[in-house]
Structures are given as structure tokens and as C-alpha cells.
Design a protein around this nucleic acid. Structure first.
Length: 725
DNA sequence: GTCTCGGTA
């Protein structure tokens, strides 16, 4: 959507105020009051932030209950407790279909422990795709067990672990259990592994399932060590249950009913071409006609969110006096921390909150007070295209969501009471959607996973996976690892590869860090890669304040490009309020003065402080690995840019492009013409050679995170010498 | 001329 298009839309709406709202736009679905949401599992407990503990037992239409044990007994799953435990006892693998609100995630581990299925001292591990879920579940279940977190019930997520000698139930991220495999390939401490939210089919869940199948063969097999058998419980949505069952030799499927408020679903009568406009009209239709309750709108991305935000505010000002106030709250992952907090603030009396969210609100964040959901049926999806020579690239395109996601979105309206979902697409369009999203392992680059598996002595191609990736994706990953020097020409893991795998980083970043050893700039490369490994961009792109943000950050800009600009910002932040990059100890004890000064500095420079804090944690972890791998984390070259750029180039060798006579950039390893992303400090600079963090196709193939390097670097990069082979 | 979402001792 162009800037001009947005303007035009806004203008049109100004001339046709809310009188134009289309009341006949929606019709109730055939299954009107049927709550599509109840077909989708995903216990609310898993996605509720820690501070919302009180809501973990789910929406409680049941009579008020006083004790925690009474609440446990009233959960739908409690009725089937004996039968469930008997099934799990009788089978090595059980697939458990639990609807939302069944209580399966909190209760099953306790049932198994109390039934003695973990033996006298064995562990029950429950994996989650998201860390907040692991944290909040452990807190709730510890409360139910009457023990402190870290006692009988503990958790393990990156940067944070609370488990003791007496811990028997361990909530953890699936990535963390994947890491544990490296040191204990048979997971011998675990008597039971429960894989929760398996229907999400994340990359880590799929790799874990493949490993569990392998472990079962060894620990439970006839020829194997039968003294320490493992039990596996897969928790999933109805849709995928049979597939999980088939994967685990037709494992028994057990169904548990949920408890969820009904959500009435309306479909559009006609297909909508402009979903932002349709969402605008639907919102005001709700706002004018419907009883109080907040509205959650699902949109594909930041651009649409900002566009709808502006349009809603424009109309809200034209509402007649006395109409309820409208409070628009945008929500997407790149948002700074303080703005995220607005989501959880209570809606002022007489006002209506309208949350404009990406699919972050589908699973990761649960917003209280939502009664109405507006679903555009769209989401952005990142997909790795391996086919292209030169390492391939990602596409980031808006696509139709799957039916399972549509049902999950609808369910967000029924968390606290009966709700309503307005789909901006027809019922036929809903039926035409794919039943479930494609598993992540088929959409993503695999170099990192492949390196991890090789360290376990496994091969991605030989591993029995639920869905095997394409040959092109596998060979692209092998090629990347070979060019980085992690594999030799016989595909065997090298010393370099083993060292790279020790770092919790993507292979290119790990390679850059290792290259910093010879170049004496480990301190600087650590600063840079830890920010790149964080979960959001450092610099906030603040919509209409875009000009101001560019101006505020001008002082960080380094002529060599984005990587050193980033480093300047990290250094500047560390200098504010006296807190250095390594000053974690003192900082925590420090008075609020330095802390508020840093916060204000970050706000003024449009820098995401949450990202800086996350990067600091990552950096501290990397420093620990550096010590074991023989890198001096304090080695610094001061302001000398060339060693840092050369170290980065060793990791990003596949991501290099040269300026052509016609002013475009062409990949060095590959044929693609790439364009420098407009957000880069190198946009329009026309330097002879660049390296970049990633290539993303949206409207064009954009290089993001770009630095200028001397052409003379290429000759010294191992990747270029290996390329011929 | 612009950036869905997760995660790793």
C-alpha cells in the first residue's frame, strides 16, 4: 500500500462519515453459536503473562471457589483423571487432544507425578514453544503443589532456570530441551516428556519429536536398555492428532473436552479487497451498535496497523458528543517496552479499547477485556527460498491464514465471557483455507539446525521427521556450512564447525565472532552480534515520526554502515548514567537515577531499550562461551573499523554484493540484483562492495543491515577460496 | 523508498 493510497483512503472516509457504515456487511455463520474456538487447543495458561497468575485456571463461569484444590477438581480434565493416567501408563506414547480451558497443561504433569509414573526421583519435562508460558505455568503449578518455584515444580528457559535437587516437574522451552540433548542424547534424567502445543509445528518441536522417536527406540526397544523406559505425551489440536499418532506408530489418541465461552462468528457476505477499510467500518459498526467490550483487530503488519490507527482516530473525533471514547492501542513485536504495557492497562470507564495487533496476539500475548475480534484473515509469513544460487533468500509476503489460525483468533473473544468474531472474508473463503499452517521446518533456512544435529552425530536427511524438508533446502544449508568452514569437502564437521555450534547464534554470526579472535576485535564483534541476535530491531521505526527518528540517530551514523552505526549506539547507551556494558552487577544495585536517564536517552533516540537489555544478556552468555572456546572477550581494536568489518565479512561472505556500472548491486555468490533497504544508513550511498545481514523479498529483494567493505577483503575470505570446490 | 512471529547452558 503506497503512501498516496493511504492518504486517499483517509480522504474518502472523511467525506463519507460513519453514516456509511454497512450494517448488512456480515451474516451469522451456519454454525452460528458454535464456538469455533473450542476446536482449537492451546490452554490459556500457556500464553498468559506471569503477572496474570490469577487467571490461569481459565475463564470461570463456574461458581466462585475458594481453594486451589477445589479449582483443580472443577477443571474439565479432572473427571477423566483415572482413565487418562491408565492410558498413559499403558502406552509409551499418548496423543492428548485437549481443548482450550481443559486444564491439561497444568494437570497432566501433576497426575503423572502423583500416580508414580516418574518413579522415585525421575523428571517430568513439559516443553513449550514460548518462554513466558514455561515461566507462568511453573508458577501456577508450584502454587497448586504448595511448593515454591524451584522445589517440586521448576522451570528452565534461556537466561533463567529455577530447578533444584527435588524438582520433579520441569516446565521448559522446547529449545532448552533441544540444548540438553547435546549433553545427554538419551535424555536419561527424564521419565516422561510432555510436548505441549505440538500442533504449532515449530522447527524446534519437530526436531524434538524426531529425537524423541529415536530415544524411544533405544530406551524402550527390545534390544535396548529396558531398565529406563521413556514415556512421551504429545498435546495437540484435533486437526493434527492423527498425524502425530501415525508418526508414533499409531499411538493412542485421548480426547479431553475444554471449557470456553461461546463465540458467535460472522462472515462477510462479500469478499473484501481493502481489509483495512473493511476493518475500519466493522470497528465503528461495533462501537456504535454493540455493548461495551474491547475490540481486537488482527492485521498483517506495522504498516496496516499505523494506517488503521490513523483512520480510526480521524473518525473517532467526528463521533457525536456523548459517544464512548475510543482508545487505539497498536501491538507488534518491534514495539518498545513501554508501549507494550498499554495493552494491559484497564480500559477507562465509558471508553472502548481497540487493539490493532499482528499475530503476536494469536498466541504470545493475551489481552484482558477483549469481547470482539475482527479478523482480516491475513498474516505475513516468512519463507526461505533455497532454490536460488548464493544461499537463497527469504520472502516476507502477506498471505491468507489457515483455518486453525482463524479459529484461534476467534477464540480470543471468548476468554472472559461470550464473545463475537467478525471475519472480513466469506464463509466460502474460510472453507477454502488450508486446515493448518505449514510446519516451520518446510519454510525456514536449516543451516543452524543442521549444525546442531551434526554435533549430535545425526544427519538431517537421515533423521525421521514428521515432514522432511526439500532437497534444495538441505543442500543449501550444507553449502552454507561448507562455505563457512564448518564442514569439510566430505561433509564432516570441522573444528571450526564444532566451535561455531558452541555459540547460541546463527552460523554466520558465530563464524564472525570466531573470526574476531585473530583480528583482535572480539569485544566489538560481541557487541554487534548480540544486538543482531536479539528478537527485535534496535532502532525503532516510528511511523509518522520517521523523520525525527532519523535525525535523533544521526550522531551514531558511521560511514562504514549499519553494523558500526549499531556499535556506536550500543557504546553511547553504555555511557549514559555511568552504566557500562559490563556493569551489570553495579547497575542492578544502582539507584533509579541512572536507570531513568538511560530510559529517557533511549526514548529520545528512538532506540529500543528492551532490545539493548536483551542484547546485554545474550552478550554475557556469549562471553561465557568465548572463555571456553579460547576467545578473549576483552580484546578490542578501539575505533579501527577494518578488523571488525573483516570479521563480519568472514561470517557474511555469502551475503556480499558488488556495485554494477548501472548503479545496482549484484550478489557476489549468486545472480540476484539486490536493493539496499531504505532503512539502511547505506541506502543511496553507492559504495563499491557491501555485506548484509539478510536478504528479504517484499516488493523487491532488499538487503537489510548493510555495511561497506573494501573489495580487497574478498581475497582473504575462506568462503571465496572454497567456492570453487 | 520500509521491517509476521518465535527460540538456544
Amino acid at each position: 500500500m503506497s503512501e498516496g493510497g493511504k492518504q486517499q483512503r483517509t480522504q474518502q472516509k472523511r467525506q463519507q462519515p460513519q453514516a456509511n457504515l454497512d450494517n448488512g456487511q456480515h451474516q451469522a455463520s451456519q454454525d452460528g453459536t458454535a464456538n469455533g474456538a473450542s476446536k482449537r487447543p492451546g490452554p490459556q495458561a500457556t500464553s498468559t503473562p506471569p503477572r496474570k497468575k490469577a487467571r490461569l485456571s481459565g475463564p470461570a463461569p463456574a461458581p466462585a471457589v475458594s481453594s486451589i484444590q477445589e479449582q483443580r477438581r472443577l477443571l474439565p480434565i479432572a473427571k477423566g483423571r483415572e482413565a487418562l493416567v491408565a492410558e498413559i501408563r499403558a502406552n509409551e506414547v499418548t496423543v492428548l487432544l485437549g481443548e482450550t480451558g481443559s486444564g491439561k497443561t497444568t494437570q497432566v504433569p501433576q497426575y503423572l507425578l502423583e500416580a508414580g509414573l516418574a518413579g522415585a526421583a525421575g523428571l517430568i519435562g513439559i516443553t513449550q514453544p514460548r518462554r513466558v508460558a514455561a515461566l507462568s505455568l511453573a508458577a501456577r503449578v508450584a502454587l497448586e503443589q504448595g511448593a515454591p518455584v524451584g522445589g517440586t515444580v521448576g522451570y528452565a528457559v534461556r537466561f533463567d532456570e529455577r530447578c533444584g535437587a527435588g524438582t520433579r516437574i520441569k516446565y521448559m522451552t522446547d529449545g532448552m530441551l533441544g540444548r540438553e540433548l547435546l549433553g545427554d542424547p538419551l535424555l536419561s534424567r527424564y521419565k516422561v516428556v510432555v510436548v505441549d502445543e505440538a500442533h504449532e509445528r515449530t522447527l524446534r518441536t519437530d526436531l524434538l519429536l524426531a529425537n524423541l522417536k529415536r530415544i524411544l527406540r533405544v530406551r524402550n526397544g527390545e534390544s535396548g536398555d529396558n531398565r529406563n523406559p521413556l514415556k512421551v505425551v504429545i498435546m495437540s489440536a484435533t486437526l493434527d492428532a492423527e498425524k502425530f499418532s501415525r508418526f508414533f506408530s499409531n499411538a493412542k489418541i485421548v480426547y479431553v473436552k475444554g471449557r470456553q465461552h461461546p463465540v458467535k462468528i460472522f462472515h462477510a457476505v462479500q469478499g473484501q479487497t481493502d481489509y483495512v477499510d473493511a476493518a475500519l467500518r466493522t470497528f465503528f459498526q461495533i462501537h456504535v451498535d454493540q455493548p461495551p467490550g474491547d475490540v481486537l483487530v488482527f492485521l498483517p503488519g506495522q504498516e496496516d496497523i499505523e494506517s488503521l490507527d490513523a483512520a480510526i482516530m480521524l473518525f473517532a473525533r467526528q463521533l457525536p458528543a456523548g459517544a464512548p471514547e475510543v482508545l487505539v492501542v497498536p501491538m507488534f513485536a518491534a514495539l518498545a517496552g513501554e508501549k507494550m504495557g498499554r495493552i494491559f492497562g484497564a480500559t477507562p470507564r465509558g471508553a472502548r479499547k481497540c487493539i490493532l495487533a499482528t499475530n503476536i496476539a494469536e498466541t504470545s500475548i493475551t489481552i484482558p477485556g477483549v469481547r470482539y475480534v475482527i479478523d482480516t484473515g491475513k498474516a505475513k509469513e516468512k519463507r526461505f527460498l533455497a532454490g536460488a544460487v548464493g544461499g537463497g533468500f527469504d520472502t516476507l509476503l502477506t498471505r491468507d491464514i489457515a483455518r486453525a489460525n482463524a479459529m484461534q483468533r476467534a477464540g480470543r473473544a471468548g476468554r472472559e465471557g461470550p464473545g463475537f468474531c467478525y471475519r472480513l472474508y466469506t464463509e466460502d473463503a474460510f472453507r477454502a483455507m488450508a486446515p493448518a499452517a505449514e510446519p516451520e521446518i518446510l519454510r525456514t533456512g536449516l543451516a543452524g539446525s543442521m549444525l546442531q544435529l551434526l554435533c549430535l552425530g545425526q544427519d538431517l536427511q537421515e533423521l525421521e521427521l514428521m515432514d522432511a524438508p526439500d532437497v534444495e533446502a538441505v543442500s543449501s544449508a550444507l553449502r552454507t556450512l561448507f562455505l563457512l568452514g564448518a564442514l569439510d569437502s566430505t561433509r564432516a564437521l570441522t573444528e571450526m564447525g564444532r566451535a561455531m555450534a558452541a555459540f547460541p547464534l546463527e552460523p554466520p554470526l558465530a563464524r564472525a565472532l570466531l573470526a574476531s579472535k585473530e583480528l583482535g576485535c572480539t569485544a566489538e564483534v560481541l557487541d554487534i552480534v548480540s544486538v543482531l541476535a536479539a528478537s527485535a530491531p534496535l532502532f525503532i521505526d516510528a511511523g509518522e515520526q520517521r523523520g525525527a527518528s532519523v535525525e535523533a540517530r544521526r550522531k551514531f551514523v558511521h560511514p562504514a554502515g549499519d553494523h558500526l552505526t549499531l556499535l556506536n549506539a550500543v557504546h553511547a547507551y553504555a555511557a549514559v548514567g555511568g552504566g557500562g556494558a559490563d556493569a551489570k552487577e553495579t547497575e542492578e544495585k544502582e539507584e533509579g537515577v541512572g536507570r531513568s536517564a538511560r530510559k529517557e536517552w533511549a526514548r529520545a533516540h528512538f532506540v529500543n531499550e528492551r532490545v539493548l537489555r536483551e542484547a546485554r544478556s545474550i552478550r554475557a552468555q556469549l562471553v561465557g562461551v568465548c572463555a571456553r572456546e579460547g576467545l578473549d572477550a576483552r580484546a578490542s581494536v578501539g575505533d579501527d573499523a577494518d578488523p571488525m568489518l573483516l570479521a563480519l565479512a568472514h561470517g557474511l561472505a555469502q551475503n556480499a554484493a558488488l556495485l554494477m556500472p548501472d548503479g545496482t548491486y549484484k550478489q557476489v555468490m549468486g545472480q540476484a540484483i539486490v536493493k539496499i533497504h531504505p532503512s539502511s544508513t547505506m541506502a543511496d550511498k553507492k559504495v563499491p562492495a557491501i555485506i548484509y545481514n539478510e536478504l528479504v523479498y517484499t516488493n523487491q529483494i532488499y538487503a537489510r543491515g548493510v555495511s561497506s567493505i573494501p573489495k580487497s577483503f574478498f581475497a582473504s575470505l575462506g568462503a571465496f577460496n572454497r567456492r570453487a570446490a
